[in-house]
Protein backbone atom coordinates (compact mmCIF):
# COMPACT_ATOMS: atom_id res chain seq x y z
CA UNK A 1 0.00 0.00 0.00
CA UNK A 2 1.18 3.48 -0.73
CA UNK A 3 -0.67 5.23 2.09
CA UNK A 4 1.90 7.62 3.46
CA UNK A 5 0.05 9.25 6.32
CA UNK A 6 -2.22 7.32 8.59
CA UNK A 7 -5.85 8.32 8.00
CA UNK A 8 -8.14 9.06 10.91
CA UNK A 9 -10.13 6.40 12.73
CA UNK A 10 -13.43 7.44 11.13
CA UNK A 11 -12.07 7.13 7.61
CA UNK A 12 -10.43 3.82 8.40
CA UNK A 13 -13.70 2.42 9.79
CA UNK A 14 -15.54 3.68 6.72
CA UNK A 15 -13.03 1.97 4.44
CA UNK A 16 -13.16 -1.23 6.45
CA UNK A 17 -16.92 -1.52 6.83
CA UNK A 18 -18.45 0.80 4.24
CA UNK A 19 -18.54 -1.53 1.27
CA UNK A 20 -19.48 -4.67 3.25
CA UNK A 21 -22.43 -2.80 4.82
CA UNK A 22 -23.54 -1.51 1.43
CA UNK A 23 -23.37 -5.02 -0.02
CA UNK A 24 -25.38 -6.49 2.84
CA UNK A 25 -28.00 -3.75 2.46
CA UNK A 26 -28.20 -4.44 -1.27
CA UNK A 27 -28.66 -8.12 -0.53
CA UNK A 28 -31.33 -7.27 1.99
CA UNK A 29 -33.22 -5.06 -0.45
CA UNK A 30 -32.99 -7.75 -3.10
CA UNK A 31 -34.20 -10.52 -0.79
CA UNK A 32 -37.18 -8.44 0.39
CA UNK A 33 -38.30 -7.31 -3.04
CA UNK A 34 -37.74 -10.51 -4.96
CA UNK A 35 -39.97 -13.41 -4.22
CA UNK A 36 -37.13 -15.86 -4.75
CA UNK A 37 -37.29 -18.75 -2.37
CA UNK A 38 -33.55 -19.21 -2.60
CA UNK A 39 -32.58 -15.81 -1.23
CA UNK A 40 -33.43 -15.37 2.47
CA UNK A 41 -33.00 -12.00 4.21
CA UNK A 42 -29.78 -11.39 6.15
CA UNK A 43 -31.49 -11.53 9.60
CA UNK A 44 -33.03 -14.88 8.65
CA UNK A 45 -29.57 -16.23 7.74
CA UNK A 46 -28.05 -14.91 10.95
CA UNK A 47 -30.86 -16.47 12.94
CA UNK A 48 -30.40 -19.77 11.13
CA UNK A 49 -26.67 -19.52 11.73
CA UNK A 50 -27.15 -19.14 15.46
CA UNK A 51 -29.74 -21.92 15.64
CA UNK A 52 -27.79 -24.32 13.48
CA UNK A 53 -24.23 -23.88 14.61
CA UNK A 54 -24.46 -22.79 18.26
CA UNK A 55 -25.69 -26.27 19.00
CA UNK A 56 -24.29 -29.80 19.38
CA UNK A 57 -23.90 -29.75 15.62
CA UNK A 58 -20.82 -27.62 16.06
CA UNK A 59 -19.16 -30.41 18.03
CA UNK A 60 -20.63 -33.29 16.03
CA UNK A 61 -20.15 -31.96 12.51
CA UNK A 62 -17.98 -28.89 12.29
CA UNK A 63 -15.20 -29.76 14.72
CA UNK A 64 -14.50 -33.26 13.36
CA UNK A 65 -14.29 -31.76 9.86
CA UNK A 66 -11.74 -29.20 10.97
CA UNK A 67 -9.85 -31.84 12.96
CA UNK A 68 -9.62 -34.08 9.89
CA UNK A 69 -8.46 -31.14 7.81
CA UNK A 70 -5.73 -30.27 10.29
CA UNK A 71 -4.66 -33.89 10.70
CA UNK A 72 -4.43 -34.43 6.95
CA UNK A 73 -2.66 -31.12 6.46
CA UNK A 74 -0.13 -31.89 9.19
CA UNK A 75 0.53 -35.36 7.79
CA UNK A 76 0.95 -33.95 4.29
CA UNK A 77 3.40 -31.37 5.64
CA UNK A 78 5.54 -34.00 7.35
CA UNK A 79 5.42 -36.23 4.27
CA UNK A 80 5.98 -33.44 1.75
CA UNK A 81 8.90 -31.84 3.56
CA UNK A 82 10.32 -35.21 4.62
CA UNK A 83 10.42 -36.48 1.05
CA UNK A 84 11.12 -33.12 -0.55
CA UNK A 85 14.39 -32.52 1.29
CA UNK A 86 16.22 -35.67 0.12
CA UNK A 87 14.84 -35.31 -3.40
CA UNK A 88 15.90 -31.66 -3.53
CA UNK A 89 19.38 -32.46 -2.25
CA UNK A 90 20.11 -35.25 -4.74
CA UNK A 91 20.52 -34.28 -8.38
CA UNK A 92 19.84 -37.79 -9.66
CA UNK A 93 16.86 -38.46 -7.43
CA UNK A 94 15.37 -35.16 -8.51
CA UNK A 95 15.82 -35.86 -12.21
CA UNK A 96 14.14 -39.24 -11.76
CA UNK A 97 11.29 -38.03 -9.56
CA UNK A 98 10.34 -34.74 -11.17
CA UNK A 99 8.19 -35.97 -14.10
CA UNK A 100 6.34 -38.36 -11.80
CA UNK A 101 5.71 -35.63 -9.25
CA UNK A 102 4.59 -33.14 -11.90
CA UNK A 103 2.09 -35.71 -13.11
CA UNK A 104 0.68 -36.27 -9.65
CA UNK A 105 0.40 -32.57 -9.07
CA UNK A 106 -1.47 -32.08 -12.34
CA UNK A 107 -4.19 -34.55 -11.35
CA UNK A 108 -7.11 -32.43 -10.11
CA UNK A 109 -7.28 -33.42 -6.41
CA UNK A 110 -11.07 -34.01 -6.32
CA UNK A 111 -10.80 -37.06 -8.62
CA UNK A 112 -8.79 -38.69 -5.84
CA UNK A 113 -11.94 -38.83 -3.72
CA UNK A 114 -13.66 -41.72 -5.55
CA UNK A 115 -10.30 -43.40 -6.02
CA UNK A 116 -9.33 -43.36 -2.38
CA UNK A 117 -12.85 -44.24 -1.30
CA UNK A 118 -12.38 -47.43 -3.24
CA UNK A 119 -9.03 -48.16 -1.63
CA UNK A 120 -9.73 -47.10 1.92
CA UNK A 121 -13.49 -47.21 2.48
CA UNK A 122 -15.53 -44.28 3.73
CA UNK A 123 -14.36 -43.80 7.28
CA UNK A 124 -12.32 -41.04 8.93
CA UNK A 125 -9.13 -42.57 7.63
CA UNK A 126 -10.28 -42.25 4.03
CA UNK A 127 -11.15 -38.57 4.45
CA UNK A 128 -7.80 -37.81 6.02
CA UNK A 129 -6.06 -39.81 3.31
CA UNK A 130 -7.88 -37.81 0.64
CA UNK A 131 -6.69 -34.57 2.22
CA UNK A 132 -3.13 -35.89 2.51
CA UNK A 133 -3.08 -37.12 -1.06
CA UNK A 134 -4.16 -33.74 -2.37
CA UNK A 135 -2.09 -31.51 -0.08
CA UNK A 136 1.18 -33.38 -0.33
CA UNK A 137 2.08 -32.47 -3.92
CA UNK A 138 2.32 -28.69 -3.70
CA UNK A 139 4.27 -29.03 -0.45
CA UNK A 140 6.57 -31.69 -1.88
CA UNK A 141 7.28 -29.88 -5.14
CA UNK A 142 7.87 -26.54 -3.47
CA UNK A 143 10.20 -28.12 -0.91
CA UNK A 144 12.18 -29.77 -3.71
CA UNK A 145 12.45 -26.43 -5.50
CA UNK A 146 13.40 -24.55 -2.33
CA UNK A 147 16.08 -27.06 -1.36
CA UNK A 148 17.46 -27.14 -4.90
CA UNK A 149 17.82 -23.38 -4.98
CA UNK A 150 19.76 -23.11 -1.71
CA UNK A 151 22.45 -20.49 -1.94
CA UNK A 152 25.75 -22.01 -3.06
CA UNK A 153 27.84 -19.56 -1.01
CA UNK A 154 25.83 -20.37 2.09
CA UNK A 155 26.29 -24.10 1.68
CA UNK A 156 30.01 -23.61 0.99
CA UNK A 157 30.15 -21.62 4.22
CA UNK A 158 28.57 -24.54 6.04
CA UNK A 159 31.08 -26.96 4.56
CA UNK A 160 34.02 -24.74 5.50
CA UNK A 161 32.92 -24.38 9.09
CA UNK A 162 32.07 -28.02 9.54
CA UNK A 163 28.30 -27.47 9.81
CA UNK A 164 26.89 -30.82 8.70
CA UNK A 165 24.27 -33.46 9.45
CA UNK A 166 21.29 -32.45 11.53
CA UNK A 167 22.69 -29.03 12.23
CA UNK A 168 23.07 -28.35 8.50
CA UNK A 169 19.51 -29.57 7.95
CA UNK A 170 18.16 -27.32 10.66
CA UNK A 171 20.21 -24.19 10.13
CA UNK A 172 20.71 -24.24 6.39
CA UNK A 173 18.37 -26.53 4.45
CA UNK A 174 15.04 -26.04 6.20
CA UNK A 175 15.49 -22.34 6.92
CA UNK A 176 16.85 -21.62 3.46
CA UNK A 177 13.97 -23.41 1.77
CA UNK A 178 11.31 -22.02 4.12
CA UNK A 179 10.00 -19.27 1.78
CA UNK A 180 9.28 -21.90 -0.87
CA UNK A 181 7.94 -24.37 1.67
CA UNK A 182 5.53 -21.75 2.98
CA UNK A 183 4.35 -21.02 -0.56
CA UNK A 184 3.62 -24.74 -0.94
CA UNK A 185 1.81 -24.82 2.38
CA UNK A 186 -0.38 -21.91 1.30
CA UNK A 187 -1.42 -23.70 -1.90
CA UNK A 188 -1.98 -26.90 0.06
CA UNK A 189 -4.28 -25.15 2.54
CA UNK A 190 -6.81 -24.17 -0.11
CA UNK A 191 -6.60 -27.64 -1.68
CA UNK A 192 -7.14 -29.11 1.78
CA UNK A 193 -10.33 -27.13 2.43
CA UNK A 194 -11.73 -28.14 -0.96
CA UNK A 195 -11.02 -31.79 -0.24
CA UNK A 196 -12.42 -31.62 3.26
CA UNK A 197 -15.76 -30.41 1.90
CA UNK A 198 -15.87 -32.72 -1.11
CA UNK A 199 -14.92 -35.86 0.74
CA UNK A 200 -17.83 -35.24 3.07
CA UNK A 201 -20.27 -34.37 0.32
CA UNK A 202 -19.35 -37.50 -1.58
CA UNK A 203 -19.71 -40.19 0.98
CA UNK A 204 -20.38 -39.41 4.57
CA UNK A 205 -23.02 -39.19 7.23
CA UNK A 206 -21.48 -36.33 9.17
CA UNK A 207 -19.27 -33.31 8.73
CA UNK A 208 -19.70 -29.83 7.40
CA UNK A 209 -19.92 -30.77 3.73
CA UNK A 210 -22.47 -33.48 4.44
CA UNK A 211 -24.63 -31.22 6.59
CA UNK A 212 -24.74 -28.44 4.04
CA UNK A 213 -25.75 -30.81 1.25
CA UNK A 214 -28.38 -32.26 3.58
CA UNK A 215 -29.89 -28.80 4.10
CA UNK A 216 -29.85 -28.17 0.39
CA UNK A 217 -31.58 -31.46 -0.39
CA UNK A 218 -34.18 -30.73 2.29
CA UNK A 219 -34.66 -27.20 0.91
CA UNK A 220 -33.72 -25.73 4.29
CA UNK A 221 -32.48 -22.64 2.49
CA UNK A 222 -31.53 -20.28 5.35
CA UNK A 223 -29.71 -23.16 7.05
CA UNK A 224 -27.89 -23.94 3.81
CA UNK A 225 -26.79 -20.33 3.55
CA UNK A 226 -25.63 -20.41 7.14
CA UNK A 227 -23.48 -23.40 6.23
CA UNK A 228 -21.98 -21.54 3.28
CA UNK A 229 -21.32 -18.65 5.63
CA UNK A 230 -19.62 -20.97 8.12
CA UNK A 231 -17.40 -22.43 5.41
CA UNK A 232 -16.54 -18.92 4.31
CA UNK A 233 -15.63 -17.92 7.86
CA UNK A 234 -13.56 -21.07 8.19
CA UNK A 235 -11.64 -20.32 4.99
CA UNK A 236 -11.14 -16.73 6.06
CA UNK A 237 -10.07 -17.69 9.59
CA UNK A 238 -7.57 -20.29 8.41
CA UNK A 239 -6.04 -17.86 5.95
CA UNK A 240 -5.67 -15.24 8.68
CA UNK A 241 -3.95 -17.77 10.95
CA UNK A 242 -1.74 -18.88 8.10
CA UNK A 243 -0.65 -15.36 7.29
CA UNK A 244 0.15 -14.71 10.93
CA UNK A 245 2.33 -17.84 11.06
CA UNK A 246 3.97 -17.00 7.77
CA UNK A 247 4.89 -13.56 9.00
CA UNK A 248 6.56 -15.06 12.05
CA UNK A 249 8.46 -17.72 10.13
CA UNK A 250 9.55 -15.51 7.26
CA UNK A 251 10.10 -12.12 8.89
CA UNK A 252 13.80 -12.32 8.03
CA UNK A 253 12.92 -13.12 4.43
CA UNK A 254 10.77 -10.05 3.74
CA UNK A 255 13.25 -7.68 5.41
CA UNK A 256 16.16 -9.40 3.70
CA UNK A 257 14.66 -8.91 0.25
CA UNK A 258 13.27 -5.44 0.83
Amino acid sequence: MTVTERPGLGLRLLRLLGLPILLILAWWAFSVTSESFYVPTPPRVVQAFAETWFSPRLIDDALPSVARLLAGYALATVLGVGLGVPIGLSVRLRAAAEPVLEFFRAIPPPVLVPLIMLLAGIDNGMKILVIVSGCVWPILLNTVEGVRALDQVLSDTCRMYGVRGRSRLRHLVLRGASPQIMAGLRQALSVGIILMVISEMFASSSGLGFTIVLFQRGFAIPEMWSGILLLGLLGFGLSVIFRWMERRVLSWHWSHRA
Partner: peptide
Protein backbone atom coordinates in the same frame (compact mmCIF):
# COMPACT_ATOMS: atom_id res chain seq x y z
CA UNK B 1 37.39 -28.62 4.01
CA UNK B 2 40.13 -28.79 6.69
CA UNK B 3 39.22 -28.21 10.33
CA UNK B 4 41.88 -25.58 10.89
CA UNK B 5 40.92 -23.33 8.01
CA UNK B 6 38.38 -20.51 7.66
CA UNK B 7 37.20 -18.69 4.55
CA UNK B 8 35.82 -15.18 4.07
CA UNK B 9 33.84 -15.16 0.83
CA UNK B 10 33.37 -12.21 -1.48
CA UNK B 11 29.58 -12.38 -1.36
CA UNK B 12 29.04 -11.31 2.25
CA UNK B 13 25.31 -10.92 1.57
CA UNK B 14 25.10 -14.59 0.73
CA UNK B 15 27.57 -16.11 3.15
CA UNK B 16 25.81 -14.86 6.28
CA UNK B 17 22.64 -16.62 7.36
CA UNK B 18 19.87 -14.02 6.95
CA UNK B 19 17.69 -15.81 9.52
Amino acid sequence: PPDNMAVVFQEYGRSLFPW
